[in-house]
Structure formats: C-alpha cells, structure tokens
C-alpha cells in the first residue's frame, strides 16, 4: 500500500469554483513528488488539503495507512514549507532553528544534533550565536529554510518555497532541499509552476491543469512521452512544437511520414531539439528571432503551419527574415487528437 494516497479528492468552494476535480494519486514512502501546473490549476489547493489547511469537499486522504481527511493540521504530523519564514528577531540563529523542535518529544541532545546538521548543510554553522538582524538577506533566507527543514515529519509539503529568489540563490537552496530530502527520506510534495525546477527535483512530476491531473510520471516520461498536448506544451523550455496535420491513406501531411492512424486531422508534436535545419526538408520557415542562450540557441520561425522553435548549438546566428528549411526526426514525432489533445501515437 502506498504511503500517501489521494482518492477522488475534490475541492469545491462555496462560490462554485471547482478547484480540484476528483484526483487520484499514490505516493510511495520517500518519494519526491512535484505538483506542476499554471496559476489556478489546483496544485496549491491540493497541497493545502493534504496539510489540512483546506477541507476536502469529497474524497479521502490516507497517510501511512490512516485516514487523515478530517484530522486537524496538527494531528497529521506534516510540515508545511512556505516561501518565507519570519525569523524571531530576539532569538539567536540557534534558538530560531531549535524552535520547531520544541514539543516534538526529541531529547535535548537529539535536538542539538539536528540543529548542527542543518546548520552545516546550509553553511551557517559560524552564525549560530548571531541574531537575524545582524545578517544579510541571503543568510536570513537560508536560516528560514533551515527552520522549515530541521524537523522531519511524515511529510514535507512545500509551496513554491523558493518563489521570488534570484536564480543564484534558488539553485543553491534547491540543492539543499534535495540533499536533505534524500538524506532523511522524508516523503515530499512540492508545488511549482516552473517546469525546470520540477525536472531537476522530482522523482515523479504530477502535471495539473484545471483541477485535474494530466499526467504523473518521471521527468523523462513526462518530457519524452507526454500524455496530452497540455503536458507536451507545459513541460519543456520552450514547450513541444505543435503542427496541424492531416492523415490520408496512412501518410501524414505536412511531414510526409507514415502513421498508423485512420484518415483525418491530427496534431503532431515535435520537441525543439528534434527539428533540424535542412534545405531539402519538408517544412520551410522564416526566422522571427534567433534567441541566444549561451549553451544553445532557440531559433523561432514563422512557418505555414504556425510558429515553430528549433533548438540549435550556439554556432553562427540567423537573422530575422532568413528563410530556413527544416526536417524532423521521424522517431520523435508524436500524434495527438485535435479535439481533447490526448495522445494517439
């Protein structure tokens, strides 16, 4: 049996807004799950229901074999990690870090060890006797994350904990979170709208949109084999290209590829790295922008089939207005249904 199970979990607000529409999710002990989706997709509401901060209007939440759906937050033994924790200005860094461990039943010795461990992981050991106001913002942020991670409850629930930090600090603290999670094996649900963050942190990504789960899978499953057009477009930077196609007698225009689908319209999906410049290729486009990104560049093209993006080595730049021919890797073309966007092949 899974460690955490959401069964037909639902949240409908009094004003009628159906934030979460009956989702099912099974999480194994020690898994790092990222709930990924755009604003309003229901990811934060789901997290808050697991925390007990929102009441589920239907469905069940099981944690470690027990039904916790109606338990108060304090009875669930879960730790919620928000974006910024206020530190107590009148307490030393050590006392701030010790604070969440009070009333946990841990012996004083164990509490001290936990504080020393987390301080070492965050590189703030030399600051333990200082006071928050004496420290620069970066150290305060590290310590506030430490306060969230010093306790090891049954679940860590994280709601965009790195929200608006600079990329430098984000990356650093992301590594701390992942290392702490691996070291202590605390089962974790992590909410973000940032697909790159999801790809680097997750054992499994749960893609949500409009209150439903679109797909749950490992980062590479979700990226290489998306279950629908929403996931295909949302995961990846930039997302998967979509090309409107038409199947006639087992051949798909405009790429001229054989497909095992009945005649009719289809949406083809191709990742930017599976498009290649080729003057003899089946597609032609005009350069809108050559977007240099250092290690690679994204070439944005206007084609008869719409806007396409090709990922290329940094090499020589294209100029706006240049004409470019393209071909695709046939092995990496996916087919989706035009109506509901579900994956066909």
């Amino acid at each position: 049996m899974s460690f955490l199970a959401l069964e037909r979990l639902e949240k409908r607000y009094p004003d009628g807004f159906h934030a979460v529409r009956g989702i099912d999710l099974a999480v194994e002990r020690g898994e790092f799950i990222v709930l990924l989706g755009p604003s309003g997709c229901g990811k934060t509401t789901t997290l808050r229901m697991v925390a007990g901060l929102e009441e589920a209007t239907a469905g069940t939440i099981r944690l470690d074999g027990g039904d916790v759906t109606r338990l108060r937050p304090s009875q669930r033994d879960v730790g919620m990690v928000f974006q910024f924790y206020a530190l107590y200005p009148h307490l030393s860094v050590r006392a701030n870090l010790l604070f969440p461990l009070e009333n946990t039943g841990l012996a004083k010795m164990q509490r001290e060890v936990r504080v020393d461990d987390i301080a070492a992981a965050l590189g703030v050991t030399h600051l333990l006797e200082r006071f928050p106001r004496q420290l620069p913002g970066g150290d305060q942020q590290r310590i506030s994350l430490g306060r969230a991670l010093v306790r090891q409850p049954r679940l860590w629930l994280m709601d965009e904990p790195l929200g608006t930090l600079d990329s430098d600090r984000r990356e650093e603290l992301r590594e701390v979170i992942r290392a702490q999670q691996l070291q202590h094996g605390v089962t974790t649900l992590y909410v973000t709208h940032d697909q790159e963050e999801a790809m680097t942190l997750a054992d499994r990504i749960v893609v949500m949109d409009q209150g439903v789960i679109r797909q749950a899978g490992t980062p590479s499953e979700v990226y290489e084999s998306p279950a629908d057009l929403f996931t295909a477009a949302f995961v990846g930077s930039p997302g998967m290209n979509r090309i409107d196609g038409l199947v006639t007698g087992g051949v798909c225009a405009p790429l001229g590829l054989p497909v095992a689908l009945p005649d009719g319209p289809v949406v083809l999906g191709v990742r930017p790295e599976y498009l290649h410049p080729d003057d003899a290729g089946p597609l032609r486009g005009v350069v809108v922008m050559d977007e240099y990104l250092g290690a690679w560049r994204n070439l944005h093209l206007d084609c008869p089939c719409g806007r396409l993006v090709m990922r290329l080595p940094p090499g020589a730049a294209h100029r706006p207005g240049d004409a470019v021919g393209l071909r695709v890797d046939p092995a990496h073309v996916l087919c989706f249904a035009p109506g509901d966007g579900r994956r066909l092949a």
């Binding site: 755009p38 604003s39 608006t164 709208h193 940032d194 697909q195 790159e196 963050e197 949302f234 930077s237 930039p238 997302g239 809108v288 922008m289 977007e291 944005h300 706006p320």
Partner: peptide
C-alpha cells in the same frame, strides 16, 4: 516579467524583443 509564471516569461520575452524591434 519577474512576477509572471515561468512559462509565460519565456514566451513574453521573445514577444517583447520582437515588438521592440
């Protein structure tokens, strides 16, 4: 673009650069 979703930032930055041109 800082306060927008990552996905939106990525498309708006291209839109904005093309618009400015």
């Amino acid at each position: 673009l800082t306060n927008l979703d990552a996905k939106l930032r990525e498309s708006l930055r291209v839109e904005l650069a093309v618009l400015r041109r």
